[in-house]
Amino acid sequence: MKKKVEKQPVMHTTHLPLILLGVAMSLYGLITALVWSVSSRQAMRGLITAGQQRARLAAFEDMGGLIAGIVFLVLFVWCAVASRRGPRAAFIVGALASFGPILTGRADGLLFDTLGLRLPAGSVIASALATIVFALPMVIFFIILTSSRRVPRGCRWLAFGSIFLVLATAFFPIVVTVFAFLVKPGDPGVGRMMEVGALVVKLRYILPGLSLLGLAALSLQFKKKQIPVGAQTKTQEGGTK
C-alpha cells in the first residue's frame, strides 16, 4: 500500500525570496533582451558599428551579469534557508545557476585567454558553456521539485513543464547555430530555425523566472487552502487532548 505523504508548500516560512527570485530572474532576462534588441537594431541600421555594439554588450554583460549573479545567489540561499527537505535541496542546486549570468560576459576570456583553448566555432562553445552553467542547475532544480512528493501537485506539474522550457530556451538556439555554421550551412530550413532561435534566446532567463513566480503563486494558493484544514486539525487534536 502506497504511503500517503502530507503535502507542504514549497516555502516553509515565507514565499518572499521565491517571489523575489522569480522577479529578479525575469527582470534580468527582460533587461538583457531589451539591451540586445536595442543595440542590435542600431547596429543593423548602421547607426553603430559592430565593434561599438560588442563593446556595449560586453560592458553590460560584465557588470549586469555580475550583479544579477550575486542577486540570484543571495535569493537562492535565502530560499534554501526558508524551505525544507526536497525544495531546500533544489534551491541549493539551483544556486549554482547564479554563476551563469556571471560567466556570460567572461566565457570567451576564460576559455581562450585564461585556458588558452583554440577551437572552431569558439563563440558558440563559449556561449554554450555559459548556458550550461545556468541551465543545468536549473533543470536539476526543477527535476528535484518534480520528484518531491511533499510538493503540491500543481507545483510539481509546473516544475515538470519548466524542465522542458529551460532545456528548449537554452539549447535550441545553440543546436540551430551549430547546424547553421557547421552541419548545414546555407540550408533554407535552418535559416528559418535561426529566426526562431533569435527569439527563443531572449526567453532564456524570462521563462525560468516566470516559472519560479508560477511556483510561488501555486504554493501560496496551496498554503491558503491548507490553513483552515490545518487549523481544524489543530482544534480536533486539541479537543482529543
Partner: peptide
C-alpha cells in the same frame, strides 16, 4: 541566398555568434 546571409548577420548582432563576422564585414551595415 540573401535571406541566408541575413540570418547569419542577425545571428551576429542578436545572439553574439562571433563566427558570423565574415558576413557582417562583407555585407552588413558599413
Amino acid at each position: 541566398e540573401a535571406q541566408w546571409r541575413y540570418r547569419i548577420i542577425q545571428a551576429y548582432y542578436e545572439q553574439g555568434i562571433l563566427e558570423a563576422w565574415v558576413e557582417v564585414a562583407t555585407n552588413g551595415p558599413n
